[in-house]
């Protein structure tokens, strides 16, 4: 360090020129980086503003009632006699399918992450990681197609359900779609636990399972929670696959074999027909706001949970 400082002092005349170009370049790069950092905030705000602006006029419509919008199950946006905008069945559809998907995906995802990071050899690890990344690269339309054809037939022949496109089908497809995300992020989180923890546990005579259960899982808690929540985000927001695999029926499901419709699928199916500026159009944007708030709530609780864990 001292030497460098010395050389600077030895040639004072060249410093200002170099420094000018360097400083200008640095400032520019700094500005670009700062802009890209802030851009995320700008984009989120802009999206929220746009969606909310398109939704706003519905509050002044005669057919609209916020309480009914949230808690009524009757969705008749194009009715000729009695227009009703109740999204409760759709919300329940979205939540139930996400819950089911996570019920399947979280154990599988965490289990496979633990296996990859702690139990398997380096060669197997590489090939497993590549294959899981391949799984993440399958487009959602292809998943939907699998749900519509392969899964639906399997469900009919195994359970004897009359229709194969239902909650169970959508839940399994969504679980398969979120597993790769959960695996790759939880694997990163487990890898980030310092080896000294493992060594210390081994030195104390812990078995492999004890190391995982008592040391690694508590140490990687935050990362694992982040992995699960990204999986939830994927499941809530997924549209095409659930549109094809869930049967698209507006009703509150009473069992795994009932068809449902989700908020996302409903927007995708109906926005094309709703003429711009009509009540139906605005109410679909309001459903978008609802979806936005739903994911926002999930992320916020996650944040609080993580902070709670940190304090302890």
């Amino acid at each position: 360090m001292n030497k460098e400082v010395n050389t600077d002092i030895v040639r004072p005349k060249q410093i200002p020129r170099r420094a000018f170009a360097a400083i200008a370049g640095e400032k520019l790069i700094e500005l670009i980086i700062r802009l890209s950092g802030v851009s995320a905030i700008i984009f989120v705000l802009a999206i929220f503003f746009f969606v909310f602006r398109e939704a706003l006029p519905i509050f002044f419509s005669d057919h609209f009632d916020l309480f009914k919008f949230l808690f009524n199950t009757q969705w008749y946006p194009t009715s000729a006699v009695n227009v009703r905008y109740g999204t409760f069945a759709l919300t329940v559809g979205s939540i139930s399918i996400t819950f089911l998907a996570m019920l399947i995906a979280v154990p599988f995802g965490l289990g496979s992450a633990i296996y990859i990071s702690e139990f398997c050899g380096p060669k197997q690890k590489e090939s497993l990681k590549i294959i899981i990344e391949l799984l993440a690269a399958i487009p959602s339309v292809v998943w939907g197609f699998i749900g519509l054809t392969v899964m639906s037939r399997m469900i009919i022949s195994i359970t004897g359900a009359p229709v194969g496109v239902n909650l169970l089908n959508g839940g399994i497809i969504l679980a398969l779609m979120s597993v790769p995300i959960i695996v790759s992020i939880s694997e990163d989180a487990l890898k980030a636990v310092p080896d000294s923890y493992r060594e210390a546990a081994l030195a104390l005579g812990a078995t492999r399972w004890q190391i995982v259960y008592r040391v690694l899982l508590p140490a990687a808690k935050n990362g694992l929670l982040a992995a699960v929540l990204l999986g939830v985000g994927r499941a809530v927001g997924e549209t095409m696959a659930v549109l094809m695999a869930t049967g698209h029926a507006v009703q509150i499901p009473h069992g795994l074999l009932d068809s449902v419709r989700t908020l996302t699928a409903n927007i995708a199916a109906e926005l094309g027909e709703a003429s711009v500026g009509s009540d139906h159009y605005h109410v679909l944007f309001l459903t978008g706001v609802l979806l936005f708030l739903l994911t926002f709530a999930v992320n916020l609780t996650a944040d609080f949970v993580i902070r709670g864990i940190r304090r302890k």
Binding site: T73, W75, N82, V163, G247, H248, V250, Q251
Partner: peptide
Amino acid sequence: NKDFKLGSRDMN
């Protein structure tokens, strides 16, 4: 012109 019963499978 009455409304449909909810819960039907609405195909595309």
